[in-house]
Design a protein around this nucleic acid. Structure first.
Lengths: 101, 101
DNA sequence: TAGGTATATAGTGATATATCTATGTGGTGA
DNA sequence: TCACCACATAGATATATCACTATATACCTA
């Protein structure tokens, strides 16, 4: 076996994204958005994650900056959705891992 | 669809582990150990990751503390191996993701 | 345009991480 | 036991992150 290692450039690009997502609240938000299957408002997300408005907004912004989420305004509400489906692999890993132990 | 969300307790337990692993050097080390398929010495790991001795030792310790790696001494050398195979799912995710774009 | 609702951002202090240098420790062989 | 090799840890500094409060902004309705 002499497979090539994943190159450092890739690791340096991917690591901070994973790192940012690997936060209890942010994982919860992603899990919620994944389950709902459609963009949800900040208020809904606050309820699902049991956090205050500022925190929710900050976490959402962080993930939006990373390209993990996208947002669109609809009247008074701003709806957030998953922009990069590949982060859901992480959730799959967690679910899979939890199921087998 | 009304699947349950992953509970916060699980997320809080798993997040710091993922977070710690989601570091370019540490991912590289895991990728290397995965590819080699057997425990390797700190010196080998230094070469594979292109880092100095102290840094390598520190990263290894961090992952060992988290239970991701294990170590055993063999003469002058200390060999590190992967203790928790489930972190390899992360590498699979990265490889898979990189392959499809 | 005034007032309300929903969301975003600024500012802050506490805590954690990254990285580097220097030094300590454990094992081996002369 | 001394010197050496492989590795571990301490200490210091810079930087990033967290969680919170207060305040600002955007949009709607009347």
């Amino acid at each position: 076996m002499n497979r090539l290692l994943i190159d450092m450039e890739t690791l340096e690009r991917v690591a901070p994204i994973i790192r940012n997502v690997a936060h209890p609240l942010r994982l919860r938000i992603l899990d919620y958005l994944d389950r709902e299957g459609e963009p949800k408002s900040v208020s809904d997300i606050m309820d699902a994650a049991c956090v205050g408005q500022a925190i929710a907004s900050q976490q959402l912004r962080i993930m939006k900056d990373q390209g993990v989420l996208s947002s669109k305004r609809e009247g008074n509400f701003v709806l957030y959705g998953i922009a990069d489906q590949s982060v859901l692999l992480l959730l799959d890993c967690i679910r899979h891992h939890e199921a087998h132990k």
